[in-house]
Amino acid sequence: MTLSFNERQVLELIFLGQSPSRIEMAQTIGLTGASLTRIVSRLLAEGLIEDKAERTGQQGQPRRVISIVRGQHFSAGVTFSRRQVQVALLDLAGDIAGTRSVPISDAAPQHIVAATQSGLGALLKHKKLERSDLVGFGVSVPGNFGRDTNDFRAHELFPQIDNPSFADDLTAMFEAPVFFENDGACAALGEHMFGAGRGVSHLFLIHVGHGFGGGGILDGRLFRGANGNACLPGPIFPIGGPRPSGQDLLDTLADNGFPGLELTDAELEGDAVRPYLLKWIERAGEQLGRAALVISGLFDPARILVGGRLPGWVNEDLAARASQFAQAAPGPSRGLRTVDLTAAKLGPSAGAVGAASLPLFAKYFSGATNDAFSNYRNGRRAAKEAQLVEDAL
Score class of each variant (00 low, 15 high):
T2W: 00
S4W: 11
S4H: 10
E7D: 10
V10A: 09
E12I: 13
E12G: 08
I14Q: 00
I23D: 10
M25F: 05
M25D: 01
G30Y: 11
A34V: 13
A34T: 13
I39Q: 07
R42V: 11
L44G: 10
L44W: 00
A45I: 00
A45H: 12
I49P: 01
A53Y: 11
R64L: 13
V65P: 09
V69Y: 04
G77A: 10
G77P: 02
G94Q: 09
P103L: 03
S105Q: 15
A107W: 05
A114K: 15
A115W: 01
T116S: 13
L120Y: 03
L120V: 10
H126L: 07
D133W: 06
L134C: 04
V135E: 14
G136S: 05
P142N: 04
G143K: 07
N144M: 12
F145I: 12
F145N: 02
R147A: 14
Q160E: 14
A167I: 01
L170D: 12
M173P: 02
P177L: 00
V178M: 07
V178E: 04
G184P: 01
A185D: 15
A185W: 03
C186R: 00
C186P: 03
A187D: 05
E191H: 06
E191C: 05
E191P: 02
F194I: 08
G199Y: 04
G199Q: 02
V200I: 15
S201H: 08
H207C: 09
V208K: 10
V208S: 09
G213F: 04
G215F: 05
L218I: 14
L218V: 13
F223A: 12
A230E: 06
I236T: 06
G240N: 04
T252R: 12
A254D: 11
D255A: 15
N256D: 11
F258G: 03
T264F: 03
E267V: 00
E269Q: 12
G270L: 08
V273G: 03
W280K: 06
E282H: 08
R283S: 12
Q287W: 05
Q287C: 02
Q287M: 15
A291V: 14
A292T: 11
F299R: 00
F299D: 11
A302W: 03
V306S: 11
G308S: 13
E316V: 09
A328S: 15
S333H: 08
S333E: 11
G335S: 01
L336H: 11
R337L: 09
T338K: 09
D340L: 06
D340Q: 12
T342E: 14
K345H: 14
G347Q: 07
G351S: 07
V353H: 06
G354Y: 05
S357Q: 09
L358A: 10
P359D: 06
F361P: 01
A362V: 08
K363I: 04
K363A: 15
Y364M: 07
F365Y: 10
T369Q: 08
T369I: 02
T369N: 02
G379P: 11
R380W: 07
A382I: 02
E385D: 14
A386P: 09
E390R: 12
D391P: 00
D391R: 13
D391C: 06
A392C: 09
